[in-house]
């Protein structure tokens, strides 16, 4: 059975791979086109100055005029943490996913509309990176998930990520209203940066924890499962048995009862 199945041509797989390759190509193009030549190592003085100006206009109210961090009025809580050493990757992730600047103080910065152009984000990233060394924005090769091994990435994902983000990356609850967000729609670069910098409650997965290759594999796995067609129909949010049970009670029983009512009703 299996041997036969393995020899049979699989047009769908081919199509899938083709689509994947196309998407990859497009993504790579976009990344290359907008990436500054030297985001991490040798940012130009102009870029840093532009970034500093942007920072002071939009971020300094919480993070301090020199990114040294500030406390709230009562001095008991951190309004914005010090940013020296968080690295360009943290800036690109936080600002590039719209989490920063935060609209209002809350328990967790939600993903929202991006406020800056990618150029501006790179400038701010360069400024923060100039304060102290920190994780750099990953290179195109590091997030080139076409080279990754999705199966290995899946194993790493299940051990390190699934307990918070759920098996399908749909997200999950943390303590006291915090949550691990859904990973749907996250770009490879942002996924990489999140692992590298550990935003908010998320722990840091440095390159010595999950290797550069391992991170690429994780991205490859996430992209593979988000691109694959659903096998058995609507995923019901990939939330597991809770949504399945709800569906059985509401739609399953609903349809059965509707049929039973029709069956018991006298014909016209």
């Amino acid at each position: 059975m299996n041997a036969l199945a393995a020899r049979r041509p699989r047009p769908a797989t081919t199509v899938l791979l083709l689509i994947l390759a196309l998407v990859l190509g497009a993504a790579a193009l976009v990344t290359f086109a907008t990436r500054p030549a030297s985001a991490s190592s040798a940012a130009s003085g102009d870029q840093i100055a532009q970034g500093k100006a942007l920072f002071q206009a939009s971020c300094a109210s919480c993070h301090g005029i020199n990114a040294q961090g500030t406390m709230t009025g009562s001095g008991t809580n951190v309004a914005g943490p010090a940013l020296a050493g968080v690295g360009a990757a943290a800036v690109d992730f936080q600002v590039g996913t719209g989490r920063m600047p935060m609209a209002a103080p809350s328990i967790q910065a939600p993903r929202s509309k991006v406020q800056f152009s990618q150029e501006q984000i790179y400038a701010m990233a360069a400024y923060i990176a100039s304060l102290a060394p920190g994780p750099a924005i990953p290179t195109a090769a590091q997030v080139d998930f076409a080279k990754g091994n999705a199966a290995v990435g899946g194993e790493i994902f299940r051990v390190n990520c699934a307990m918070c983000h759920n098996f399908a990356g749909s997200g999950g609850a943390l303590t006291r209203g915090k949550y691990a967000p859904s990973l749907a729609g996250s770009t490879p670069t942002h996924i990489y940066e999140a692992m590298l910098t550990g935003p908010q409650s998320m722990p840091i997965f440095s390159d010595s924890d999950i290797s550069v290759v391992g991170k690429r594999d994780v991205i490859a796995y996430l992209k593979a499962i988000s691109k694959e067609p659903t096998q058995g129909g609507s995923r019901l949010g990939s939330l597991g048995p809770v949504s399945e049970g709800l569906f059985a009670w509401v739609f399953g029983l609903g349809l059965m009862v509707a049929a039973a009512v029709w069956l018991g009703k006298k014909a016209a």
Partner: peptide
């Protein structure tokens, strides 16, 4: 969900309803 392994776990680990 992947194969069973006692070390990993998924968020939203619930039994059937």
């Amino acid at each position: 969900y992947g194969p069973y392994d006692p070390s990993p776990v998924t968020a939203g680990s619930q039994p059937d309803w």
